[in-house]
């Protein structure tokens, strides 16, 4: 079967992309020096470049991309809508808002973990609201509308904060958070986010059969024995935790959650359960490659990863959407 080979193939590509990200940079490192730095046999400079700068950055890009790819696939399965992603339900926006609030009030200076915790809190607040709504409404449209309202409200508050920013320094901080980046991320940033991502992953893995069943519509899924409120709650909680953690690492990065599942879907027979894992890996690969691009493109100031992701993602998405429109009438 094609889909059996897909995960190993994508994993190999992911590994290659991460290695490439370690080799490429302002001072290219030869594979020999990379190996030496990995095993601790190389020079101190190389070790610092690898362990403190390039590897954490590549891993951060992969983890964030994987998180967004997985959440996009899960939400699309739940809402049976190929345009769903954490952004649609307002989770990314609320996470960014949390982070922005922490920056605005200077809480970020207190401790390095304040901003990540604030981002995760924002995402959890949004998911809690969505989870409560999901228990009380059976309508997916209502859920999307609530997400849209959340997203708009968080966006408005963000704009207000930017508007009131006391000095240009804070403003540039806020902007860099909104545009998204994995530059100068450390393993600590990733480790802080990891527990939330793992718990979220468990919720999503537990819902994967329900996501397949939901292909037939909610009524048929009920008939099949799917506990709909539970499935909705799990997916929303899972994506909330993972998205909040991803935003805490890299800020808001769009389109990965839409792009990766779209590319994977035809390769796995469109089954929402089978889409999950490859979407995550492909999302990671896309973001690692995009981040290599960010570092290679000559620009007066380093481009933001979120900007580059959108520059690749948006046209790709439009192209995919047009193809889909043609086959689905």
């Amino acid at each position: 079967m094609k889909d059996r080979a897909l995960i190993p193939l994508l994993s190999a590509i992911a590994l290659a992309a991460i290695i490439a990200a370690c080799l490429i940079g302002s001072t290219p490192m030869s594979p020999g020096r990379l190996l030496a730095a990995l095993t601790g046999a190389g020079g101190a400079g190389d070790a610092i470049v690898l362990w403190e700068i390039r590897l954490p950055r590549a891993i951060a890009a992969f983890v964030v991309g994987a998180a967004l790819g997985l959440c996009g696939a899960a939400l699309q399965g739940l809402l049976r809508n190929p345009l769903a992603e954490p952004g649609v339900l307002g989770v990314s926006a609320c996470a960014s808002l949390g982070a922005t609030l922490a920056l605005f009030y200077g809480a970020a200076a207190l401790s390095p973990i304040t901003v990540p915790v604030a981002a995760i809190s924002g995402a959890l607040a949004a998911t809690a609201l969505l989870a409560i709504a999901a228990i009380h409404t059976s309508s997916v449209v209502t859920l999307i509308l609530i997400g849209f309202g959340l997203s708009s409200f968080a966006g408005a508050l963000m704009a207000l904060l930017l508007n009131l920013a006391p000095n240009p320094f804070t403003l540039s901080d806020l902007i860099s958070w909104t545009l998204g980046s994995v530059a100068s991320r450390s393993f600590d940033d990733i480790l802080l986010a990891a527990p939330f991502m793992i718990v979220g992953l468990v919720f999503i893995v537990l819902s994967r059969r329900a996501l397949s069943a939901l292909s037939l519509g909610e009524e048929a899924a009920h008939g099949l024995g799917v506990d709909l409120p539970r499935a909705r709650g799990f997916v929303i909680l899972g994506t909330g935790l993972i998205t909040g953690a991803a935003v805490s690492i890299a800020g808001a990065i769009g389109f990965i959650g839409i792009m990766a599942p779209h590319l994977v879907r035809p390769l796995v027979g469109y089954d929402p359960a089978r889409v999950l894992a490859p979407s995550a890996i492909l999302g990671g690969v896309i973001l690692v490659l995009a981040d290599i691009g960010v570092r290679l493109i000559p620009a007066p100031a380093e481009l933001r990863l979120g900007v580059v992701a959108a520059l690749i993602g948006a046209p790709a998405f439009v192209w995919i959407a047009i193809g889909r429109g043609r086959t689905h009438g």
């Binding site: 049976r80 292909s215 519509g217 048929a220 009920h222 008939g223 879907r265 469109y270 089954d271 929402p272």
Partner: peptide, 12 residues
């Protein structure tokens, strides 16, 4: 249960 409306969200 075989419901009246049977929308297939994806071409599974």
């Amino acid at each position: 249960y075989l419901p009246q409306s049977r929308p297939l969200a994806w071409p599974v």
